[in-house]
Design a protein around this nucleic acid. Structure first.
Lengths: 145, 145
DNA sequence: TTTTATATTTGCAATGATTTCAGAAGTGAA
DNA sequence: TTCACTTCTGAAATCATTGCAAATATAAAA
């Protein structure tokens, strides 16, 4: 588990990736980095609009795309309707509850790609494991009702 | 590896799932079942339109959704731009080449979820493993040029 | 400090895959 | 044949995401 970074350290992360840390960029990075809710672009926009005084949804999309290309955030495609973003770039799986729509992180232990065959001669740069089903909370509620 | 089913057997598969095998439905099922290209709805539509004389893109979408809910086909979310479908419902991973866009199947051996923690009390109904990178063919071409 | 060049942000319009919807066509039972 | 019900169709609507050109901010040079 990596230590939680301060705002100044997040700024340095951007610089290290060759990205100039404008006010908007740092705010967007910090929000996604600290969130555990896998926010959509819209969510990031709503959360920061007031705080920043001025912000465009286009900027949010552009910036998150920039970060995804730089490997600073992960794009999560588990939702049928929109793209989500995750500031945690360490290997982990995602579980989406079909009842409540919530997305949970699942830790991955050991070699997650050990079960895969046919990787010879292929260059893998990214791996995502998505699970769906019903979460603990919804299972209990369904049982009661 | 499961035996390849005949058209009559595919029809029975539909009936067993409580789906009435109309001309359109059977054609769509058979096309996705026999394809290894992870076709989009548009692709299915183009491939069957002439053969069937009459077909609506809406029907293709509705039918594929019906099959996905019934567990007869898998929805593949690996492509940023559109939904793809896979008639192979056995556990396997998908690899998408970032250069050519091609999607390949990767066999999964053993317990693919063995590396996961935090599954207690959760009901998992679906697992998808997506990989991205550069495929063998594109790696060779990049080296030559 | 001003000028200048460049990078970033903004808001609106466009895009396009997917869905909605209401009517048409098909199907099977009586 | 009629009736009730299911399926299909095509056009219009939806809406997340992207394109674009103008506005603004920033940093370096003069």
């Amino acid at each position: 588990m990596m230590r939680i970074l301060s705002r100044a350290e997040l700024k340095n992360e951007l610089l290290r990736s060759g990205i100039r840390p404008s006010v908007q960029r740092l705010a967007i990075y910090e929000y996604v980095y600290r969130s555990t809710a896998h926010p959509t672009a819209e969510k990031v926009y709503e959360a920061l609009r007031d705080e920043l005084g001025s912000l465009s949804l286009t900027t949010v999309y552009n910036t998150l795309k920039l970060y995804a290309d730089a490997g600073l955030v992960m794009m999560i495609h588990i939702d049928d309707n929109y793209l989500r973003f995750d500031g945690n770039t360490q290997m982990h799986a995602h579980f989406r509850c079909n009842e409540c729509g919530e997305i949970y992180d699942l830790p991955v232990e050991g070699n997650s790609l050990g079960c895969l065959a046919g990787l010879e001669g292929i260059k893998v740069t990214e791996a995502q494991l998505y699970l769906r089903g019903v979460c603990k909370k919804c299972l209990q509620q369904n049982y009661i009702s």
